[in-house]
Simulated assay, not measured.
Amino acid sequence: MKATIDWTGEVSFKATSASGHSVQLDGPADLGGQNRGPRPMEMVLMGLGGCSSFDVMSILKKSRQDVTACHTELSAERADAVPAVFTKIHLHFVVTGNNLKDSQVARAVALSAEKYCSATIMLASGGVEITHSHEVHQAN
Rank of each mutant, 00 (worst) to 15 (best):
K2D: 15
A3I: 07
T4M: 06
I5E: 11
G9E: 09
E10M: 15
E10Q: 15
E10S: 15
S12V: 10
F13M: 12
F13A: 14
T16K: 15
S17V: 07
S19T: 15
G20H: 13
G20Q: 14
H21C: 05
V23N: 07
V23G: 10
D26S: 09
G27M: 13
G27D: 13
P28K: 15
A29V: 14
D30P: 04
L31P: 02
G32N: 11
G32Y: 11
G32F: 08
G33M: 13
G33N: 10
G33L: 11
R36Y: 05
G37V: 05
P38G: 03
P38Q: 05
M41P: 00
M43A: 08
M43P: 04
L45N: 02
L45I: 02
L45V: 00
M46H: 10
M46C: 04
M46T: 06
G49V: 01
G49I: 00
G49S: 01
G50P: 07
C51Y: 07
S52L: 00
S52W: 01
M57G: 12
I59Q: 00
K61I: 05
K62G: 03
R64S: 09
D66V: 05
V67L: 11
T68A: 09
C70D: 07
H71D: 14
H71G: 03
T72A: 08
T72Y: 04
T72P: 02
E73T: 13
L74G: 03
R78K: 14
A79G: 07
P83M: 05
A84V: 01
A84H: 15
V85M: 12
F86D: 06
K88S: 08
I89D: 05
I89F: 05
I89E: 04
L91M: 10
F93C: 01
V94N: 14
V95P: 03
V95A: 09
N98A: 11
S103Q: 11
Q104M: 13
V105T: 01
V105M: 03
V105S: 04
A106M: 04
A106E: 12
A106D: 12
R107C: 01
R107L: 02
R107K: 15
A108Q: 01
V109E: 01
A110Y: 03
L111D: 01
L111K: 04
L111T: 00
S112A: 08
S112E: 00
A113I: 03
A113P: 02
K115F: 00
Y116F: 06
C117S: 08
C117M: 04
C117L: 03
A119Q: 06
I121Q: 13
I121T: 03
M122D: 03
M122T: 07
L123Y: 06
L123W: 10
L123T: 04
A124T: 03
G126V: 04
G127T: 08
G127E: 09
V128L: 09
E129N: 10
I130M: 06
H132T: 15
H132Y: 14
H134F: 15
E135A: 15
E135C: 14
V136Q: 14
A139C: 10
A139L: 06
